[in-house]
């Protein structure tokens, strides 16, 4: 299994498309960093427009590496599913398209193993993307903007809130958030792989994955009670932003944040269960379909 995984990772590493994602992430991150370095105060003024009269804050301190990473992840984690689909959607269909699938499947390796190895490789690729994001969006931002307390702007129900997390209480939250994001993105990888089994070229599953993500995201954001109650809880897209839960710090009765706390761990845990269930179900279907599939390409 390990040697199969090595082979799979080697194949992924040799494909030019693999690096598109890394370049895209670096580019987006750089643009954010440049924009905030040049004029981050305007953004802060926008976010604080309704309280600028009442409070004075040191905006240059507020725009620090931790804050930057949060802002970047906020945007980037919506785009990254496309990048994950780019590799996972190609896993089987790419081999079918190239004609290597039939050679691969005449080797003494079971189809279940092939799916598991390819899934594992997609997972590792996803984790690598996230590590790359951590390096560019977090560590390089910290290098450029320095470290300080972190300000979170949050919409809760129909209210807005400003949360402040002290500097020494942030890093573990990022670690947890990146782990959560890895699981959320693995759902996308599992979905893309399932679609990949049905297709004979990689464009189809990539586009289909992205379309499903878009449609589900739109549904997740529709505020209609019947959808809120019956549909949303089952859509994986409702949980893609769950990583933010780690930054929603709990507060005491005086509204003072409690160091090391999370406001609603239960919700994050449930999200994780639902995401993991998605992964197992999608992977199970993928294996079942692939095992029965006649290879005609």
């Amino acid at each position: 299994m390990w040697s199969l995984l090595q082979i799979e990772l080697y194949k992924i590493s040799k494909r030019p498309r693999t690096f598109i994602a890394f370049i895209a992430i670096a580019a987006i991150v750089f643009i954010f960093q440049f924009a905030f370095k040049a004029d981050g105060e305007s953004y802060m003024n926008l976010m604080l427009q309704s309280v600028n009269d009442t409070f004075e804050i040191d905006k240059s301190k507020a725009i620090n590496g931790y804050f930057m990473c949060y802002i970047i992840l906020n945007t980037l984690l919506i785009q990254v599913p496309i990048l994950v689909a780019l590799v996972a959607g190609d896993a089987i269909s790419g081999e079918a398209n190239m004609g290597t699938l039939r050679l691969l499947l005449t080797k003494p390796v079971s189809r279940t193993q092939i799916i598991l190895v390819k899934f594992l490789a997609s997972f590792i690729y996803t984790v690598t993307l996230l590590i790359w994001m951590a390096i560019t969006a977090l560590f390089i931002s910290l290098f450029i903007f320095g470290a300080d307390d972190m300000i979170i702007f949050r919409v809760k129900g129909d209210e807005s809130q400003i949360l402040q997390i002290t500097q020494d209480d942030i890093m573990w939250r990022y670690l947890a958030a990146f782990c959560y994001a890895a699981i959320a993105l693995t759902v996308i990888a599992a979905l893309a792989m399932l679609l990949s089994v049905y297709a004979e070229n990689s464009i189809g599953p990539i586009i289909a994955t992205v379309s499903i993500v878009i449609v589900c995201t739109v549904i997740s954001n529709i505020s209609v009670p019947i959808i809120d109650k019956n549909v949303k809880p089952w859509l994986f897209t409702s949980y893609l932003v769950g990583w933010k839960g780690f930054f929603y710090i709990a507060t005491n009765q005086d509204g003072e944040p409690i160091k090391g706390s999370i406001e609603n761990w239960g919700a994050i845990r449930n999200s994780l269960y639902i995401l993991l269930a998605h992964i197992f179900i999608l992977l199970g279907i993928t294996i079942a379909v692939f095992k029965r599939k006649d290879i005609l390409t």
Partner: peptide, 19 residues
């Protein structure tokens, strides 16, 4: 004053709880 975030700048994690 009431604090209101500009619309559409955050994609928040709805944990099912409101204030």
């Amino acid at each position: 004053k009431d604090y209101k975030l500009p619309k559409g700048v955050t994609f928040d994690f709805d944990d099912g709880k409101s204030i």
